[in-house]
Amino acid sequence: MHTEQAAINVRVSALLEDLPKERSQLLPALWRVFEEYWLLEPEMIEAISNAMGVPYAEVYGVASFYALFDNPEGCRPIYVCTDVMCALRGSEDLLKSGQVGAKGTPVSIKGAPCLGYCDEAPALFDGKVTKTQVTQDALAQLIRGEKHA
């Protein structure tokens, strides 16, 4: 446990090295660490708290506010929009088939509110980019980690 925390501290402080150690850089700091681990567990919060000089409770309070940091499984998240315009184009089925297909893979499929691509519904956000007019096949490819999904 102790050594694990130490290792995380080292990695996190390297990730945050060039960020000014100011409270206002907390959100950028959370992003950097989240994208490294796809996870913000107490150990990472602790490490961010140390590196940024912001109390643990404050870092936790901010991290837990934002939906995109809520990923306790630590799997790469894929957000399928299930809001009105995408739902009209079958995104609820897409979500279900994705969730079945992702079982046992390092990917987790989640529903999300409007992603701002309603003109090209259904849309998904794979944690790095948004994809539009998504088909079940395209989602399955994405889950399998195939490149040009």
Binding site: Q25, L27, V54, V62, F65, Y66, A112
Partner: peptide, 26 residues
């Protein structure tokens, strides 16, 4: 450039200011 993290309420102007300051976007 500041990147939000999935909170509709952060678009409300004063919530957005809190978010930039590194606080909860309330």
């Amino acid at each position: 450039i500041r990147r939000g993290a999935g909170a509709y309420i952060a678009g409300e102007e004063t919530a957005l200011l809190n978010s930039i300051e590194g606080k909860r976007a309330e």
